[in-house]
Design a protein around this nucleic acid. Structure first.
Lengths: 118, 118
DNA sequence: TTGACATATTCCTATATGGGAATGTAATAT
DNA sequence: ATATTACATTCCCATATAGGAATATGTCAA
């Protein structure tokens, strides 16, 4: 089985760095394709293709404006990723805590050692 | 250019659903490969290969225990993903807010309409 | 040493890219 | 109607899988 399609879900879609840049760029304002091309210095077909993927998984929305098409990030679609990664937050907090405690224990030990030296 | 390697970064590594399952499974306790195989009903070589990818991007740590190898999730490596997705949180909040306001405006309008009917 | 157990790696194959080049399509201007 | 502007799609190619099968490696037990 080959790798899953980039359009299979948001996780696969955002695995591509350029697509993440596009999402960031379109988070504040909607923008025409041309602006994305200029801002990120990519080829126009490349941008269109990335937008296609992002649209297929609902990460961006589009509306026509004359001959242009305005795209904007649909932040709501990023939420599941934030929630999934958030489930690990307590673990990295514990890990940091543990690291901190080991560091403090080491400090205390070093201090005791120093006192003996005197 | 082909798609980036799954080992290029955490984003690419977690794009695979099975790898996400493995990370979840190993978040609480460290476990030998065999347990992962049983718990997720995957082939052993498949699990080893996924673990290899996860290890290459630092998403899991391993230590030997006799003839077994115990793996555990390194939550800290998931944090960048949580932070990147978190930058969109204020946007989806705004979006929800907007949806709510539109709904309320509609309710108010319906109410006015009702009053007229009287 | 030999055997059993636990993992890892290699080989093979079908599939899905992402970029570049060329072309197609839709909407507006003249 | 025709040219122009703004995007989208198609074709081609090199590369990276993920799964299955077979095999290799590493560790402990007798």
């Amino acid at each position: 089985m080959p790798r899953a399609a980039t359009t299979s879900d948001a996780f696969n879609a955002v695995a591509e760095p350029r697509r993440r840049e596009i999402l960031t760029l379109l988070a504040l304002h909607e923008r025409p394709v041309n602006e994305i091309v200029l801002a990120l210095r990519l080829e126009q077909p490349s941008v269109s293709k990335h937008l296609r993927v992002l649209r297929d998984v609902g990460l961006v929305r589009m509306r026509r404006d004359g001959r242009r098409k305005l795209y904007r990030t649909n932040a709501e679609a990023i939420r599941p990723l934030h929630e999934w990664t958030g489930e690990f937050e307590r673990f990295w907090r514990h890990q940091l805590h543990a690291v901190k405690e080991r560091a403090e224990a080491k400090m205390a030990q070093a201090k005791q050692h120093d006192e003996k030296e005197k």
